[in-house]
Design a protein around this nucleic acid. Structure first.
Lengths: 254, 254
DNA sequence: TGAATAGTGTCTGTAAGACAGTATGCA
DNA sequence: TGCATACTGTCTTACAGACACTATTCA
């Protein structure tokens, strides 16, 4: 048993306030070092990672449950959040890990957490630099990992992440991912890297810049002070009004 | 009470095999008379319509539950089926209608059906001509209605239908809706009407035909024998191999 | 023959993609 | 000065959209 007695008691009290059999998981995406990242938690004392997740209070709807999770892990600020899929397979649990985590004493809790769970999943897009992730009571680490280099994850959580990413790719033209994933000021090269990560292909630098600027959704600022031995790029930010207006009908990209 | 005693008894037995608090609803789309249609059921003795839906057996995953519903209502054949959203609001029930439908005698059944339900929704695309819809035990009619002319629907079912339609529109380029919604042989005008219904805008006839044919996913057959006082159009069918290959990366339409 | 719809072609403006040339910051 | 990256422009090809012309079918 890897949780403290206090933590176990707290959980036992809470389960009476939760809807049984239904959970919510969040795939929180960020963008750093030119790569897409996902936020995951490491279960206490077990070499197994999970998605940030939680349960649904009896007086709470699903969106509110997802928002709670975001609040607790990254103190929810400027986060784009969307439901994308509900997983309801019969095999989506790992009783051995639950035993290791909770011990064998608390039968009620074990039974509750070990029941069949249907989980509704959300994806979130946020700027890594603006948050400090916090582990939950069952975990002792909470960190960003490269989407293409995931560790071993609990039950079907890896599948959930991949499904989330494919949803993002299909909805690309309707999502404010530039705004959500990049810092306020960014270079065209930053934006191009982001597009390349999502589209999984290289784009022509010149044509990318031309096309983007023609959209009329950017504001150009002073040049970046670089440390690199090369010309300093301009910094840009989004013109929110123009951006949102364009997104409504979908931005036709690439 | 509008259900027979037999039907009530049958329901009471079944609820022990179902996952409590979770249902599955299907928005089944068809295309007829140049319009998008949705299949709905009329509750017995109440002037209220519902989506085809059902519950999840304890030994069944969500996809299987959706397939069961399709099997029972339209004997599932060549149906394209996709999960699109899970609705979990606190206000998604209508106790008055349940009382009217079930009577006040069977407390256990009333309590079960009146509990908070989270419902996972699927949309289906099928060719209206190839199915004969069947009502379920709680309904006495099952018919296609115009998407833009819906009657009064149970709880949030109207919202569910609109959400389904907006999902289809966003995923347009990745869905085999031409194949699923049209009969095997169709004219370019049929296909154009379908696109216009989904895009909610008129398209130029000449340009549409040019673009479609260039995709190389059609096979042209003999001319249609029309009754109309005009030139007879060609009939087309999809070349499945080419169509599926194109769909994988998304068909860039309009 | 005329009305209605089908099939195909033409023209123009714009966008995409390949790629070249110039600019700038720093070692 | 040379290197690395940024910025901008040119050229070609392809496609979208507007629209016109011809072809059928049947009343």
């Amino acid at each position: 048993m890897n949780l403290s007695t206090d933590q176990l008691n707290q959980l036992s009290i809470n389960i009476d306030h939760w809807v049984p059999g239904h959970s919510v998981d969040c795939v929180i995406f960020g963008f750093e070092d030119q790569k897409m990242k996902v936020l995951i938690l490491k279960l206490k004392g077990i070499n197994l990672w999970t998605l940030p997740g939680g349960f649904v209070r009896k007086n709470q709807n699903l969106d509110e449950a997802a928002i709670s999770i975001l609040k607790e892990r990254v103190s929810f600020q400027d986060v784009f959040l969307n439901q994308f899929h509900t997983f309801g397979g019969l095999d989506r649990k790992d009783l051995d890990s639950l035993h290791e985590l909770l011990g064998d004493q608390n039968k009620k809790l074990l039974a509750w957490l070990g029941q069949r769970f249907i989980t509704t999943c959300y994806f979130a897009l946020l700027n890594i630099k603006s948050v400090v992730p916090q582990p939950d009571p069952m975990s002792n680490q909470c960190k960003w990992v490269d989407l293409n280099n995931l560790p071993i994850l609990y039950a079907d959580h890896k599948e959930i992440i991949h499904k989330a990413f494919s949803h993002i790719r299909i909805q690309l033209n309707y999502l404010p991912f530039g705004l959500s994933l990049l810092p306020e000021f960014f270079t065209m090269t930053d934006l191009q890297s982001l597009y390349e990560s999502l589209l999984i292909k290289k784009l022509d630098r010149g044509n990318f810049q031309k096309k983007m600027l023609k959209l009329g959704i950017f504001e150009r600022h002073k040049k970046k002070i670089t440390g690199g031995a090369h010309r300093a790029p301009f910094l840009y930010s989004f013109n929110l009004t123009a951006y949102n207006k364009l997104l409504k009908d979908g931005i036709g990209f690439m």
